[in-house]
């Protein structure tokens, strides 16, 4: 079964190490602008959300590509760009509703998360595991488990407060 990136943004500290690691491991340049994963920050709220490619099942980038350079790789559970076929028209950059693709004018190639061929470096370097790499069918279980934990914690907190009163 394919694995997927599981982003739990509540854990994210906004250190942006994932951006640097991504750019270095793909392009050998320590430049966050070349990163496939981007952390969107609202400093006032202390809210940091890492945004990356969602590897959509019915990917708009795949449908819009005029030369069919983008295809789904079911084995890896990713949407994959074949750079030999890609002509650099940037239609995929224009269509992605998540803004997950960008264009690198130096190499004349689009940037897109390729899950590092099964070993995502952002996951490896994320200390708090705000970005995690889990089995795709486990994502919903993990999410419901997290929610359940939080509900029970809230319940305990509430009863503790009640006891104080």
């Amino acid at each position: 079964m394919a694995k997927a990136l599981y982003i739990d943004y509540q854990k994210c500290t906004g250190c942006r190490l994932c951006e640097l690691v991504c750019a270095v491991s793909h392009d050998g340049i320590s430049n966050p602008a070349r990163s496939r994963i981007r952390v969107i920050k609202w400093e006032a709220e202390g809210l940091y959300i890492p945004m990356s490619c969602q590897q959509c099942q019915e990917a708009p980038c795949m449908n819009v590509c005029p030369v069919k350079a983008i295809s789904r790789d079911e084995e890896m559970g990713r949407v994959y760009v074949d750079y030999d076929v890609c002509i650099g028209c940037r239609a995929c950059v224009g269509v992605c509703p998540f803004g997950a693709m960008s264009f690198n004018t130096i190499d004349k190639k689009v940037l897109k998360c390729d899950l590092c061929d099964g070993d995502p470096q952002c996951v490896r370097f994320c200390e708090v595991k705000a970005v995690d790499f889990v089995e795709a069918d486990e994502v919903c279980i993990l999410k419901s488990r997290n929610a359940a934990e939080r509900v029970s914690a809230a319940g305990k907190e509430a009863s503790a407060l009640e006891a104080q009163l």
């Binding site: 943004y9 981007r38 969107i40 959300i49 945004m51 992605c96 998540f98 803004g99 997950a100 693709m101």
Partner: peptide
Amino acid sequence: PNCRKTKMGERL
């Protein structure tokens, strides 16, 4: 694309 990320983040 940058605003899309922000927008999606907000929605999330």
